[in-house]
């Protein structure tokens, strides 16, 4: 099957999630016999796009007009739908992040193509086309059978490892047929903390809750995260009172993460919080209350006061790194 993968980028740089999506597209193409074409919209360096060849893309379509630097899911959808038609793609891959969550459903509805949102594994093509995703806030998995000729999949970040080989993709300019008049949303500003790892893409996450007692105590959390090269997160009460920004809030009404390692410090583990983290591969809980429900969902635990344990843990990480 011919596969089209949408390349999400920020400020002209490829996101790790885009490399995962290309790797995934390449696995789908290998499995079903076909080639991978990538599509990128807006200002991005052609060299960066050509590098997608090492992840399995044969060709990259680029529509670089400046109006694409303004994100509008409706206008983007028209461009992507045209690329699907032009490449006769049968599978269209997105990343299940803020852009992909806006775009993939629109593309699916426009093409009347069945969709699976938040896939966590490559499709099973034995006697159909079935894709696995997490449902009931991480409490179960479901296998979705897609019944249409064209299929849309958004891939959950951090679900499959990036695989890099050799090669370079041919970058071709793409006439999307989309003009400035197609844009009905005007983006006024974007603000992101560029110095840290985006939480949904992070392989390691250090998260803290009310047990930290106040925002002034986050220094040691930031330090532990920096030593581990991890992203920081928090529980709902902490973002509700403004100790930490909302985009760090993990849980039912916040974001869902599935890192390799989730370290929860001073978080009791309410079911709403677990809904955002229980697909993490390994969970470590540090809490002074041995009865905290989070210990039941944890792989490793330390019963102790965060203010005693975390500084020692930082020293232990430093020692580990020095030795490695």
């Amino acid at each position: 099957m011919s596969v089209l993968v949408y390349i999400d980028h920020a400020g002209g740089k490829l996101k790790k999630a885009a490399l995962e999506a290309t790797t995934y597209a390449s696995k789908v193409a290998q499995k079903t016999g076909g080639e991978v074409t990538a599509i990128a919209l807006g200002s991005i360096d052609e060299g960066a796009l050509a590098a997608l060849g090492a992840y399995g893309a044969t060709k990259v379509l680029k529509a670089g007009e400046s109006h694409f630097d303004n994100f509008d899911a409706g206008a983007y959808t028209k461009a992507i739908a045209k690329a699907v038609e032009q490449t006769a793609a049968q599978v269209v891959i997105f990343t299940h992040n803020s852009s992909g969550k806006s775009l993939a459903p629109r593309v699916s509805a426009r093409l009347k193509a069945g969709m699976v949102a938040g896939a966590i594994d490559v499709p099973n093509t034995d006697g159909g086309f079935s894709v696995r995703k997490s449902v009931f806030s991480g409490k179960a998995f479901a296998d979705y059978q897609i019944h249409t000729d064209v299929k849309v999949i958004s891939l959950n970040p951090n679900s499959i490892p990036v695989e890099k080989g050799d090669g370079s993709a041919a970058v071709a300019s793409f006439d999307s047929g989309v003009s400035a008049a197609d844009f009905r949303i005007k983006v006024l500003e974007r603000s992101t903390s560029t110095d840290s790892i985006p939480l949904p893409e992070a392989e390691l996450v250090v998260s803290a809750g009310r047990g930290l007692k106040g925002p002034e105590n986050w220094g040691m959390i930031d330090e532990l995260a920096a030593e581990l090269n991890a992203a920081t997160a928090c529980s709902r009460p902490v973002s509700d009172v403004g100790w930490r920004p909302h985009h760090e809030h993990v849980g039912q009404t916040g974001i869902t993460v599935r890192p390799n390692l989730y370290i929860a410090i001073g978080i009791s583990g309410a079911i709403q919080h677990l809904a955002g983290v229980n697909n993490s591969k390994v969970i470590v809980v540090i809490n002074k209350d041995s009865e905290a429900p989070f210990f039941k969902a944890a792989d490793y635990g330390i019963v102790g006061d965060a203010f005693d344990v975390v500084p020692k843990l930082i020293d232990a990480v430093k020692a580990f790194k020095a030795q490695a």
Partner: peptide
């Protein structure tokens, strides 16, 4: 356009 063919519960985490 799609239907769920089956569900699976995640493996139980072994105790902490």
């Amino acid at each position: 356009l799609s239907t769920i063919s089956s569900y699976e519960l995640p493996p139980q985490r072994s105790s902490v």
